[in-house]
Write a protein that binds this DNA or RNA. Structure first.
Lengths: 351, 351
DNA sequence: TCGCTTTTTCAAAGCGCTTTGATACCGCGA
DNA sequence: TCGCGGTATCAAAGCGCTTTGAAAAAGCGA
C-alpha cells in the first residue's frame, strides 16, 4: 500500500493525504480523521526511501564499529550503549545504522556514509587521546557526538563523557584513607582518552599523599578478565606486592579476584579491589552490598543522553556544541577493607 | 556531488555515467575508465535513498532488539554476533539497521520495517520455543534467518544454530565418565529454544546412565554471574550437594566458581564445572589449558554465517529454506576432574 | 445577489537514481 | 553509394514521497 493507492481509495489527492498524515493545518479535521483511519486500517507507512529522498533527510544515525580480524575485540559496553542510544532514536522516529568495518577502513566508512547521504549524523565511539576522526567529521560537516573525549580542545565538538579523572581520583583517595600505600592500577589502553584520564586521576591522588605509582604495579591493555588475572598474578609474586588494586572494568576486577583467591588470599582483607563499573545489564554489581567497591556510571544512560544530544544537534544545526559530563559515584562493596596492621604484612602471609 | 553534476562535468548523460559505474557492458572501456576516475576524484557515491527508490531494494538488513525497561538485559552475545553479521553485510554492500524497541512493540516493529520498505530482510534473535515472530515474518513475506530455533517444524524457515542438545549431551557424558553422579544444571531461561535443547541433552545423558536431574539442582534464568553464584551457593548448603555443575554461559560459570571458592572449595577438585562458551571476544576462555572445561562455539562465526545465508536468500528468493547446524566442541580445561573417592566425600569436607 | 477572504483540495514539479526504448555513430560488405 | 548490424550514447519515464503554487469551495458582509 502506497500513498497513491491510499489516496485513490479515499478519493483524495496525494497532497491532501500526505498533509493529513503529517499534521499540516490546512486540512480539515474531518478529512484528517478519515485519512488517519484508512491509513491505520491498511497498515500504511510511508516508504522510508521515498520520504527521505523528498525531504532530504535520512532519518538515520550512523554508528561505525571497527572490527577487523576475527580476534579483534568488540567493546563489551557496546550493547548497552546502543540500547540507550537506540531508545532515543526510536522515540524520535530515527533509525540506527551500524557499519561494521575493518579498522583501517574507518575513515572511508565515515566519508561514504556522508557522501551516500545515508545518515543525518553519527555517534563516535571510544575516542583516542588524539583522534583524527573528530577532525574528519568536522570537515565532512556531518553532525556528531562523541562518547568520551579526546585530548583536543574539548569544547570544539559535542560529547558525553563520564568524569573519569574525578572517579579514579576519588577511588584512589578512598583506598588511601583506608591506609593503603601500595596501590596498583590495571587500566585500559592508555592511548584511549578515558584510560589516560583515569590514570591521571589515580596519579594525582597518589601525589597528594606523597605516594607514587610503581611501573611494575601499573598495567594497561584490552580490558579483559585475562588482563586482570595476569597482571595481578604477576604482582603477587613481588617482594612488596600492592595491598590494593584499582581496576578499569568489572571484567578486569574478576580476573584480579581470581588471581588473588588462587593464592588463597582474601579480597577485601588481604588485597582491596576497586573497579570502574559501567553498570552493564548482564554484568551487575549491585544489590545491598555489591561484590566490588566501584565507581559506577551507567553506560546505558550515557548512550541515551548522547543519542538525544545528537538528535538535538541535527534538529538545530546552528546550535553551539554541547558537552555533558556524567558523574560516576563511588559505591562501597565487599572488596575493600582497611590495611592490615604491620604485625601481619601481606608479604609474610604470601610466603 | 550527485549524478547530474558528475555527468555534466564529464559531458556525458546520466545514463552513461550510471551504467559505467555499475559495470554494464554497453559502455566502452575507455569511457568507463574516464567515469570511474572522475567519480573517484570527486568522491562521488550514489545517494542511498535515491538508489533504493529506483531499484526497489533497501540494501539493508534489519535487527530488532527488544530492550524495554531500564533493567531489561541486553544479550551479551549481541555485540559479537552483530560484528560477524555486519562483516557479511559490509562485504555485500548492505547496511545494518538496528531497531531498539520496547519488547511489547516488537511485532509492530517488524510490521513497520516491512511496510516502510526499510529493509530487505531481517535477522531474528533469541527465538523462544514457540515464537510468534516466525509466523509473522512469513506472513509479511520478509526474508529472514533465525539465530537459533524454535520448537516448530524447523525446516519451514531458515536458521543457523549450534547443536545445543549434542553439546550438553556430550558435556554431561564427559562428567559422568569422570565418575560424577550428582550433576547440577544452571541453564538459561527455558522458554528459549536453546535452553530447552540444552536441558534435553543433559537429561538424555543422565538417563542413559540411570541418573536423573534433581529439581533442587537444576536452575534456569537470565544468564548472569549472579544466577551462577546464587544457584551454586544454595546447592552447597544441601546435604548431598552436586559434585559437578553444568553452566549455560561463561558468566554463570564465573558466578558458580565464586560460590565454590567462597566455601574454600576448589573448582576441578571438589566441584567440577563445565560451561557453554560462546567464544566472545572480550571474554575469552582459551589458551593452552583454558580456565573452564567448555563446549565452545563462536557466536561471531554464527553471525557471519547467518548474515551470509540471509543475503543469499534475498538474492535468490525462490531458493528453499536453509539450515546450518554448527558444532560446539568440547574443550578440556582446568575446571573438571575425577570424582574424589568415597573416603573423602564432598559433604564431609563441606562440614 | 455579488465580491472578497478564508478554508480546503489539487495538479505538478522535484528529490537522485535506474532502466527502457530510441537514436546517433561507425565500419563494412554489397 | 547504400544499407545493415553492432556499438556507444542519450532522453525520458518512473520509483513514492513532499511541497509549491494554483484552483475550487465555502463563508460572510454588504
Amino acid at each position: 500500500m502506497n500513498l497513491k493507492e491510499l489516496s485513490e481509495l479515499l478519493g483524495l489527492s496525494q497532497t491532501t493525504v500526505s498533509r493529513a498524515l503529517n499534521g499540516y493545518p490546512e486540512v480539515s479535521e474531518q478529512t484528517r480523521a478519515r485519512v488517519v483511519e484508512a491509513a491505520e486500517a491498511n497498515n500504511y507507512r510511508p516508504n522510508s526511501r521515498a520520504k527521505g529522498l523528498a525531504t532530504g533527510r535520512a532519518m538515520a544515525i550512523g554508528h561505525v564499529i571497527p572490527a577487523s580480524s576475527q580476534h579483534e575485540i568488540v567493546n563489551p559496553i557496546f550493547g548497552d550503549f546502543i540500547a540507550g542510544a537506540g531508545k532515543a532514536y526510536a522515540a524520535a522516529g530515527y533509525d540506527m545504522l551500524l557499519s561494521v568495518v575493518s579498522d583501517k577502513d574507518e575513515a572511508t566508512a565515515y566519508r561514504e556514509l556522508q557522501a551516500r547521504g545515508a545518515v543525518d549524523g553519527v555517534l563516535l565511539h571510544a575516542p583516542r587521546r588524539e583522534d583524527p576522526r573528530i577532525e574528519l567529521l568536522k570537515q565532512l560537516k556531518l553532525p556528531f557526538v562523541v562518547h568520551g573525549r579526546s585530548d583536543d580542545a574539548s569544547n570544539s565538538y559535542s560529547w558525553v563523557d563520564v568524569n573519569n579523572t574525578e572517579a579514579f581520583h576519588e577511588a584512589t583517595r578512598y583506598l588511601i584513607s583506608l591506609g593503603h600505600q601500595r596501590i596498583a592500577l590495571i587500566n585500559g589502553e592508555e592511548r584511549m582518552g578515558f584510560a589516560a584520564r583515569r590514570r591521571a586521576g589515580f596519579e594525582t591522588a597518589l601525589g597528594e599523599h606523597g605516594l607514587f605509582a610503581r611501573d611494575d604495579q601499573t598495567f594497561s591493555g584490552e580490558m579483559t578478565e585475562q588482563l586482570g588475572y595476569e597482571s595481578t598474578a604477576s604482582m603477587l609474586t613481588q617482594v612488596e606486592p600492592p595491598t590494593a588494586v584499582l581496576c578499569a572494568s568489572l571484567l578486569i576486577a574478576y580476573g584480579a579476584k581470581r588471581a588473588i583467591e588462587e593464592r588463597r588470599l582474601e579480597v577485601g582483607r588481604d588485597v582491596s579491589l576497586v573497579t570502574f563499573d559501567d553498570a552493564m545489564s548482564y554484568m551487575r554489581n549491585d544489590g545491598e552490598v555489591p561484590m566490588f567497591t566501584a565507581t559506577r556510571s551507567s553506560v546505558h544512560e550515557a548512550g541515551q543522553i548522547a543519542g538525544e544530544m545528537l538528535l538535538g544537534l541535527i534538529a538545530n544545526p546552528d546550535r553551539l556544541t554541547q558537552q555533558k559530563l556524567l558523574k560516576a559515584t563511588l559505591v562501597i562493596g565487599q572488596s575493600t577493607g582497611p590495611l592490615l596492621d604491620d604485625g601481619a604484612p601481606l608479604k609474610v602471609r604470601l610466603g
